[in-house]
């Protein structure tokens, strides 16, 4: 286990270094100047020159990069150019929103796709099963930004149940926060539900034909007990791999959906920072996202070994 963790950590550091260099290289070739972009065409040229100098932007990018990396090693993520704030504060300020959005999406995916998958599997080839297959096919095909717009239109304009951009933090108003995050979370979740649902359904059908299921019935276990205790647990093993991928998708999905729903989260920060050429923030965010993805994989591996005793972490 220890060796496993060390190996994972090594992999994490390697990934981060690699991604950081890629980001740096991309910025190297990306046209545009952060101060000019921020101040626009009406800006006083003297002001732009002074600010560029103050921010160290008149130095070559590799020196800026060097300073940034030096900061990282000290645990300092640097200063945002666009927002004149520490990158760390910017990220931590948005973390609760994005994490809760991602987590809510995941919860929705789990709580919708597993029961749906089980029901469909138990009624294999029935009308309901067929209908669900068609729906999920649709769910997977619709891009999330479009889905988001449809939901905003439907719930915001038609039913007036929801007002975009009225995000309140959990601490201020729990139900308000839940309300403002529900639609975005749903938007992220819908295509993922479709993916997960298929794995659950196929898993339950496949596992339902296994010998140990007959054994369980032979012991006198009820259908429910057989399903919940035996079939489901085995069916969830492949689903877990998919959930790991889905979680990565969800993290990526927050980027688009925060934009569509005007939520002040990590994703919106990333898009703004890229368009304003805010190198320190982008670098910090990209590393953060890579970090999250690696940690998710790590958690999936651990969960894997919890669910499936045949897999032991080496």
């Amino acid at each position: 286990m220890l060796a496993y963790i060390i190996r994972r950590l090594g992999l994490l550091i390697l990934t981060l270094v690699f991604i950081s260099i890629i980001t740096f290289l991309v910025f190297q070739i990306l046209p545009g100047d952060p101060v000019q972009t921020m101040l626009g065409p009406d800006a006083d040229p003297i002001r732009i020159k002074t600010l560029r100098h103050q921010l160290g932007l008149d130095q070559p990018l590799y020196i800026q990069y060097g300073h940034l990396i030096e900061g990282f090693i000290r645990g300092d993520l640097g200063q945002s150019i666009r927002f004149s704030m520490p990158v760390r504060d910017l990220i931590f300020d948005r973390l609760p929103l994005t994490l809760s959005l991602a987590f809510m999406s995941l919860i929705i995916v789990i709580f919708v796709s597993i029961p749906l998958g089980v029901i469909a599997a138990r009624r294999e080839n029935s009308w309901g099963d067929l209908l669900l297959s068609i729906f999920t096919q649709f769910g997977m095909a619709i891009p999330s930004f479009f889905m988001g717009m449809i939901l905003i239109l439907l719930f915001g304009s038609v039913f007036s149940l929801f007002s975009p951009g009225s995000y309140v933090p959990w601490s201020e108003d729990f139900w308000g926060a839940l309300g403002s995050l529900l639609l975005p979370a749903l938007t992220i979740a819908i295509p993922q539900i479709a993916v997960s649902y298929r794995y659950v359904r196929n898993g339950v059908i496949e596992q339902g034909q296994m010998d140990y299921v007959r054994t369980a019935r032979g012991k006198g276990a009820s259908e429910w007990k057989t399903l919940s205790h035996h079939i489901l647990r085995n069916s969830l093993i492949p689903v877990l791999t998919i959930l790991g991928l889905i979680l990565a998708e969800v993290v990526a999905g927050t980027i688009v959906v925060e934009q569509v729903f005007s939520l002040p989260g990590i994703g919106q920060l990333l898009i703004t920072s890229v368009s304003y050429r805010d190198f320190p923030v982008v670098q910090g965010l990209v590393l953060y996202i890579a970090f999250v993805i690696v940690v998710i994989n790590f958690l999936v591996d651990i969960l894997y070994s919890v669910l499936d005793p045949r897999i032991r972490l080496k």
Binding site: D211, Y212, H230
Partner: peptide
């Protein structure tokens, strides 16, 4: 009670 043909697959792999 019943005993099955292939004991390896007749036992649930994820339970002790």
């Amino acid at each position: 009670a019943m005993i099955y043909q292939d004991p390896m697959s007749a036992l649930n792999p994820v339970h002790t």
